[in-house]
């Protein structure tokens, strides 16, 4: 079992991490293993001895594995990775499917209507300014995956969670604008009690429209993140499996 594939498989099995994080570590170690082996050959070792030495130097101790799991295993990171890998457990898969159906149905029911956008008024520009960077980032990532057929998972994943951040900030801002609208109603009504009903209707209409628009943008960004991160996780998994397969083939050829 003393081959690169065995080390990488063992590493993959010992890392108690969601698949995307595990695949990233395996890919990095696989590349270093090949380079270290090449370095030893360059320094005059026979290929077999060079491989032995590289394997010995790169084997990860239990402490190193524990530390890697600790570094990559924050609850939030784990949750996001598990969500993005398309959860392999049946219960999780069902829950995720139900959530997706709910989100898609909810988004469809809440599709921005002309009256909603008109009701939201100038506050809509604030929400747009917050959501647009997330939309642009999602578009760039989508173009990278499907347009350019890019397969560098690390580059694709870089900054991906900013889409979620944009979603959260947009939803929170919608709520904050609603609250500000209510404050405006209270202040205006106190100044002119005779027009209080009019202020209340206007404030509630505008505030609720802003809150709904904020949530709609957040849901759409969340769905975009889910789709993109799921695809990137697939690419990562595919790359790690390719490496393991290539190492297995190489081992077989060595035996022959």
């Amino acid at each position: 079992m003393n081959d690169n594939g065995a080390l990488l498989r063992s590493l993959s099995e010992r890392l108690d991490l969601p698949h995307p994080a595990r695949a990233r570590v395996v890919i990095e170690v696989a590349a270093d293993l090949a380079d270290l082996e090449a370095l030893y050959i360059e320094r005059g070792f026979e290929p077999e001895e060079a491989r032995e030495r590289a394997l010995k130097r790169l084997d990860l101790s239990d402490d190193a594995i524990r530390e890697l799991v600790r570094v990559h295993g924050s609850p939030i990171r784990r949750g996001l990775d598990r969500l993005s890998e398309g959860s392999r457990r049946r219960g999780e898969r069902l829950a995720l499917s139900a959530l997706l159906i709910f989100l898609i149905a909810g988004t469809r029911a809440l599709m921005p209507t002309r009256s909603l956008l008109a009701d939201a008024g100038s506050g809509l520009w604030v929400l747009a300014a917050l959501a647009i960077p997330g939309v642009l980032l999602a578009a760039v990532k989508a173009y990278g995956i499907w347009g350019r057929d890019a397969h560098d998972p690390l580059r694709l994943r870089a900054g991906l969670d900013l889409i979620l951040l944009a979603a959260g900030v947009t939803a929170a801002s919608g709520l904050a604008l609603w609250w500000l609208g209510l404050r405006w109603v209270a202040t205006a009504s106190a100044a002119r009690p005779d027009a209080a009903i009019g202020f209340l209707v206007e404030g509630l209409t505008r505030g609720s429209a802003l809150a709904v628009a904020g949530f709609q943008a957040a849901i759409l960004l969340g769905i975009a993140w889910l789709v993109l991160s799921g695809r990137i996780a697939q690419i990562e998994r595919g790359e790690a499996e390719l490496i393991l397969l290539a190492e297995r083939e190489r081992r077989k050829e060595g035996i022959r």
């Binding site: 570590v25 270093d32 380079d35 084997d59 101790s61 190193a64 530390e67």
Partner: peptide, 27 residues
């Protein structure tokens, strides 16, 4: 630098005094 190069570099510059097992380098 790459991970394994770092370990080699540290080992060589310290005349072998600081010999990293490369595996400990990743964490």
């Amino acid at each position: 630098s790459h991970g394994y190069q770092l370990a080699v570099d540290i080992e060589e510059r310290s005349d072998g005094a600081f010999r990293f097992n490369h595996g400990t380098l990743y964490p």
